[in-house]
Design a protein around this nucleic acid. Structure first.
Lengths: 240, 240
DNA sequence: CGAATTGTTGATTGAGTTCAATGCAGGTGG
DNA sequence: CCACCTGCATTGAACTCAATCAACAATTCG
């Protein structure tokens, strides 16, 4: 890995792509400086593991670029992906002993990492940060609960349609936060197997649904990882 | 309803059954007094609705006694229960505009209700409360994510076994928090239909699984709402 | 007691899994 | 440059578990 990645510029927060959306958004200059001192940036390659399920929770992190997956194993070794993390999302378990799920980079990624002990202390001393983290956690809980509905009640077709819609929304110009502009051409950061693990399906079912949606003209599949949404409204209907 | 339920004793927090476990646990006397002033206790009958999905979020609450369900509807009208709330659990969506799910009492219940605006203000002025709420929300997020695994990957048998194990743990002497002592005789606060909605199954499948577990000697069913766990270890194996 | 609600049981169906074969792209080395 | 491998993805066929449809039993309630 390039050793330059580990150098610490005077204050990397200032140029941070997620500066206005992540939990550090409300901090003032002095606080940012302090936070900057206890954190470091780390670049991850697709496939790199950042946190291991069950490990002692020593790290927390903020996603700056890229997409990561949170996952856990079933007793029989299959994987269930618990969620995906996009830029400005928070990773890890503050104020807890154990990391409750594994975190792995799906694409090349850039994260802002803290020792949990440092972060916990900082958070307790800076209520504005803690408040942001609370808001984010509440939002994430809502999102996760809505996803339960998907897993518990939806058909394979509905699951994949919903997945594609969500992807197109969260993958849109990674930079912008405000406008929820969805894009129609997307490069999936997940393999078929990983999509299956997100949706609680098998790879074969995912593949068949892709094929069917393509045959029906809802989407086009220029290559394995590329999807073009041709009829968004119709796709949204299927996701109902 | 008994009007005595609405009287406000000088400080009902002092005698509160969940005083040491709920988010108010770390507050000092003065803070408790203030909180006491903005909240009120409300008794609910089984079946009463406390919050409606999609409504403006005007209330938040703490569960003191009883079991409530959080739920949402699918487009085609079926219900998915997103989670259950037990004593000391927190309900509602602080710092948010909309209530993201409905809340209904499954048993008679006692809750401690706040206007969201009052609560939000109080929370922002009292970081210790906000911290407790954050810890609780993080724990709830972890629990919810583990439940996703259940919905996404488990068979009907595994789902029901896991449900019974969890119930027996969370229903145990509602008073105690520390010791995780599970009980072997429980009165279910849910109908068959509601269990089905929690587990993402149909009522028939739930019924069949109950019958089978009874036939296999894992449990006994003295009545519709009563379950006696006869072989906990074996039941836990099924929940794997 | 009869009506209504809730739960159980049986028969059938079907969506999604499993097992198995084939296709396809990106390397690697002869 | 092409043959060959390897890992992912697609397609097909058989099977399975849970959903659905339907009848019936048990409780609850007026």
């Amino acid at each position: 890995m390039d050793p330059a990645e580990f150098q610490r510029p005077l204050n990397f927060c200032q140029a941070c792509a997620v500066r206005n959306r992540a939990i550090c958004a409300d901090l003032d200059e002095g606080e940012i400086d302090l936070l900057n001192r206890i954190g470091r940036r780390q670049r991850l390659r697709a496939g790199d593991q950042l946190l291991w399920e069950g490990d002692e929770a020593v790290l927390v992190a903020n996603v700056v670029e890229g997409v990561l997956k949170l996952s856990t194993q079933t007793a029989d070794g299959r994987e269930q992906i618990l969620g995906l993390a996009y830029p400005s999302d928070f990773l890890g378990r503050p104020f807890g002993q154990l990391t409750p799920y594994g975190v792995e980079a799906l694409t090349d990624a850039l994260v802002c990492v803290f020792q949990r002990s440092d972060f916990d202390r900082f958070a307790r001393e800076h209520p504005r940060l803690e408040h942001k983290l609370l808001e984010r956690t509440l939002t994430e809980l809502d999102r996760t609960r809505r996803w339960m509905l998907l897993l518990g009640r939806m058909s394979a077709e509905q699951k994949l349609a919903a997945f594609l819609i969500e992807m197109s929304e969260r993958l849109s110009p990674a930079t912008c936060a405000a406008e929820p502009g969805a894009i129609d051409t997307l490069e999936l950061p997940l393999s078929r197997q990983q999509i299956a693990d997100v949706l609680g399906l098998t790879i074969e079912t995912v593949s068949r649904q892709f094929t069917r949606m393509k045959a029906e003209g809802l989407i086009d599949l220029p290559s394995r990882r590329d999807v073009r949404i041709l009829q968004r409204a119709a796709l949204e209907d299927r996701a109902a």
